[in-house]
Design a protein around this nucleic acid. Structure first.
Length: 605
RNA sequence: GUCCCUGUAGUUCAAUGGAUAGAACAGCAGUUUCCUAAACUGCUGAUCCGGGUUCGAUUCCCGGCGGGGAUACCA
């Protein structure tokens, strides 16, 4: 029950009755009244002036009079210019609160067995280095979006495509063989993904040295700097060895394959730890090593069908000039597959495995072009779902000195950041004296919940499509518009409710009649009633930030109103019950909203 | 060059085409006999520039300027 929905038909009826013209519901603009004016909801009457052929004030006056007479929910009204401010009758607020209170899962819709099936791909790591801050944003967005889509009544499948093959993996393997001395996660005590990442870095370091000395050599032989660099990059012994290894891998060389499996498993163990710490999971994981051949086959079929062309050197291309794009490579001259080929294969397998109604890819906006092309190619290949795939394109996380670049060592490591957030939360709790009378387990849980809450909220409150700034020096706040602020308010409400329960004060399903609801409480009830609409909006726009900002606004408002209010010491029993019910439902909505974002709320902190 | 995204207080972020553009952080000044002070109150401070559409533009359109990205036989 949303108050707006209640009133819109009445406004339509009013216009019809007064001016004899039928209007559509979507033409009715009802918004929350600004706090400086009296009223709850405001009707913007400017759009009706053409129909009424009267001045704004006059039109507003007429509609207001009609509503006050014919709509029981409207108590009284006032007019300021073209704005008609409506006051809702007090007992309506009580009814709305009781309605919210009756629904334990307010705002969440369960999926029926025949509900649309939505598959969400996110994370998609490479197995040659550990996860960084950019991956965290991806994972949190993917998790939150899938929760939100599920909350809107859809069935979901969370999926991950692991880029587990290719030249980058060979680089790590080669470096490990050369300089690794058989190091393992066990012998070094390092997480597997970090161990592999170290060898990837080592490869790059040695490779650059080789390129540098080769370049000088070629230049001494009379090449220009540019020519020399290009040739050096191609001819450096290390990169040639890596390419040889890739060929061996593709030819199923048993030695290489065994090594590859061993090292990838180390990485997966490492990733799983990070995923667990972040609280994300997957229903089905695809591996590029298992899908790229499927993609290759599709491309070859497309070639036979005349959809693609083969160039003289043997490479295969798609001509997308008709679609306003360029030519796109699908198979290299040596017949090996590229990123696009693999994505075609993965898509095919997924639609074979599941009756997917909608496919959503959570991938950074640097790949907007890639997904535009993928959509067209899938469509050309005759997959009817190709056209409708959704690329949920999110912005990059930027650092004060620019983009994150692994080569320049400017990445913010995911595991480091998580550990740092948790230890900061622990330290803050200790300084504030929150940890008295707590077991070590409780302390651990609170530090983890609050630290991750701060991190997650920080990344999710920003509009996903925008680039965002992260300053490691300033680190993430625990005060203000933050996760811990919301968590703290939740914990305080829960504390009040615990004390009420100890005193055997229950919350009845219906509140006593004749209750006076103060203006502030009316506003809070109105705010609470918006939650359902917010979840819907977040679902259609795929925007976790909508929910994050809603939760903050609600909490901020609650803190302001109830800072000087007493709930348990209130002498009037009816008021006490109203305040308890209101608080309990604010806690419920906060918990629901934060959980949709993948953020836990603690019972105490 | 072409294409895509983006430009709001000192900083990080908000604002279905609506009233006086909201917060937070930082700065300054306050609030604790009282259900958790990770709180609350007050002050200072912003829509890149120029046109257009509209009763009304931060929002939509066009043109500049600034930032990011794509246009790889990397993934």
């Amino acid at each position: 029950m949303k108050i707006e929905e209640l009133l819109i038909p009445s406004v339509v009826a009013a216009v019809k009755d007064l001016y004899g013209t039928a209007i559509e519901e979507k033409q009715v603009q009802l918004q929350k009244t600004r706090p400086e004016f009296e009223g709850h909801l405001t009707l913007v009457v400017f759009p009706f002036l053409r129909i009424s052929r009267k001045k704004p004030e006059e039109t507003a006056q007429e509609i207001g009079t009609w509503l006050a007479a014919n709509e029981p929910a409207v108590d009284k009204f006032n007019v300021i210019k073209g704005f008609l401010n409506l006051c809702i009758a007090p007992d309506f607020w009580v009814k709305i609160l009781e309605h919210i209170n009756a629904d334990e899962h307010y705002g969440i819709q369960a999926a029926s067995p025949d509900a649309p099936l939505v598959m969400i791909e996110y994370s998609s790591p490479n197995t040659n280095k550990p996860l960084h801050l950019g991956h965290i944003r991806n994972n949190l967005l993917g998790w939150a979006i899938s929760n939100i889509i599920a909350a809107n009544g859809n069935r979901i499948v969370r999926t991950n495509i692991v880029n587990d093959r290719g030249i980058h993996i060979c680089k790590s393997m080669l470096a490990w063989l050369k300089w690794g001395n058989n190091a393992t996660p066990e012998t070094t005590g390092k997480k597997g993904d970090h161990l592999i990442g170290d060898y990837y870095v080592a490869f790059d370091k040695h490779y650059r040295e080789e390129v540098k000395s080769l370049t000088t050599q070629y230049m001494a032989e009379g090449m220009t700097a540019e020519e020399a660099t290009d040739k050096a990059k191609e001819n450096a012994p290390l990169i040639r060895e890596a390419h040889e290894m890739l060929v061996k891998w593709e030819n199923n060389d048993p030695e290489i394959r065994t090594l590859w499996e061993k090292m990838n498993n180390w990485v997966y163990d490492g990733f799983n730890e990070t995923y667990k710490a972040l609280g994300v999971a997957f229903d089905k994981i695809y591996y590029e090593s298992q899908t790229y051949l499927v993609g290759k086959k599709e491309v070859e079929k497309g070639l036979e069908d005349g959809l693609f062309v083969r160039h003289e050197d043997g490479s295969v291309w798609a001509d997308l000039k008709q679609e306003g794009l360029d030519e796109k490579l699908l198979l290299r001259k040596d017949g090996t597959s590229v990123y696009m080929t693999q994505d075609i294969g993965t898509a095919k397998l997924r639609f074979q495995d599941y009756p997917i109604d909608k496919m959503i890819y959570v991938v950074g906006n640097e790949q907007d072009y890639h997904f535009k092309v993928l959509s067209i190619l899938l469509d050309k290949l005759g997959f009817k779902w190709g056209k409708d795939l959704v690329h949920f394109s999110y912005g990059m996380v930027e650092l004060p000195n620019g983009k994150m670049k692994s080569r320049e060592g400017t990445v913010v490591d995911a595991d480091d950041l998580i550990a740092e957030m948790i230890s900061t939360a622990r330290q803050t709790s200790e300084e504030l004296g929150k940890f008295q009378d707590m077991t070590n387990e409780e302390k651990d849980n609170i530090a983890r919940t609050v630290g991750l809450g701060a991190l997650k909220y920080f990344l999710l409150k920003v509009d996903a499509k925008k680039n965002m700034m992260f300053n490691p020096q300033e680190s993430i706040d625990f005060n203000g518009n933050t996760g811990p602020f919301i968590q703290y308010t939740y914990a305080r409400i829960r504390s009040v409710l615990r004390k009420a329960a100890e005193e055997n004060i229950g919350i009845p399903a219906t509140l006593p009649a004749g209750l006076t609801v103060s203006d502030k409480e009316q506003e809070l009830i109105q705010h609470l009633a918006e939650f359902k609409g917010i979840v819907q909006q977040a679902g259609t726009e795929y925007s976790p930030s909508t929910i994050a900002n809603y939760c903050y606004d609600l909490v901020k408002e609650y803190n302001q109103f109830y800072h000087d209010y007493s709930i348990l010491r209130e002498s009037n029993q009816s008021n006490k019950q109203l305040r308890l019910m209101l608080s309990a439902n604010i806690a419920k909505v906060i918990r629901t909203g934060m959980n949709l974002l993948g953020i836990e709320v603690p019972e105490r902190m």
